[in-house]
């Protein structure tokens, strides 16, 4: 499940400061540096990915996001991005607040646990869902806080977080009429652009 970088790029202002939490090999930041001239910084915990970022010429800091963002100043970035990592955090709600303290705007990408195959697996199969997007078993999954599109929007409402844009994608990473009509059921991936 790889969200098209272009989808996110449109919300990132040229020459702005971007922090990517769980930045992987730095491919997104590299893309934003090359296409939008941003000043990017990544945070990663995985050894191999950190080295990959360095090879890609992307600034990267080794840091465990479960320890929060205390090492970053208020409003020190224009955009804070988190792709496919929020659900692996110990306290996604606290991290979301931290992201909005450090950055003016945030872009969050997560797998929608309300997607129909996941529902079918639990409701009819009686088993926790295992898919290409969420390939782990219940006991070894890093995704300890999965949520649905509705759950995420409820959290935003509760915390007074404004949703600037939302893009929902089906399992083929396409935006379709059905997905847009009933995102909680038909979206495999949700992309949110939020601010305070």
């Amino acid at each position: 499940m790889r969200v098209d970088f272009e989808q996110l790029s449109q919300w990132v202002a040229p020459q702005s400061r971007v922090l990517d939490l769980g930045c992987g090999d730095g491919a997104l930041l590299r893309h934003l540096i090359d296409t939008r001239g941003i000043q990017g910084m990544g945070v990663e915990i995985d050894n191999e990915r950190i080295t990959a970022c360095i090879r890609n010429g992307v600034s990267v800091i080794e840091h465990n996001l479960d320890r929060g963002l205390h090492n970053f100043l208020d409003n020190s970035f224009d955009t804070v991005i988190m792709m496919q990592a929020l659900q692996a955090m110990r306290r996604p709600d606290l991290l979301l607040e931290e992201m909005l303290r450090v950055g003016r705007e945030c872009i969050i990408v997560f797998p929608n646990f309300g997607h129909w195959p996941a529902r079918l697996s639990v409701a009819l199969g009686g088993r926790m869902p295992v898919s290409t997007a969420l390939p782990h078993q219940w006991y070894n999954t890093p995704n300890i806080h999965l949520c649905t599109v509705k759950d995420f929007e409820a959290l935003c409402a509760e915390k007074g977080i404004r949703i600037l844009h939302r893009v929902v994608l089906n399992q083929h990473d396409h935006s379709g009429a059905l997905t847009n009509l009933l995102p909680n059921l038909f979206a495999a991936t949700a992309v949110y652009h939020v601010s305070r």
């Binding site: 000043q39 910084m41 950190i50 990267v60 800091i61 080794e62 090492n71 970053f72 100043l73 020190s76």
Partner: peptide, 16 residues
């Protein structure tokens, strides 16, 4: 050191 560099807007890579 890293936090100060980030705060100063400098480019930095850090590995522990």
């Amino acid at each position: 050191i890293v936090n100060a560099l980030v705060g100063a807007g400098r480019e930095v890579c850090y590995a522990d």
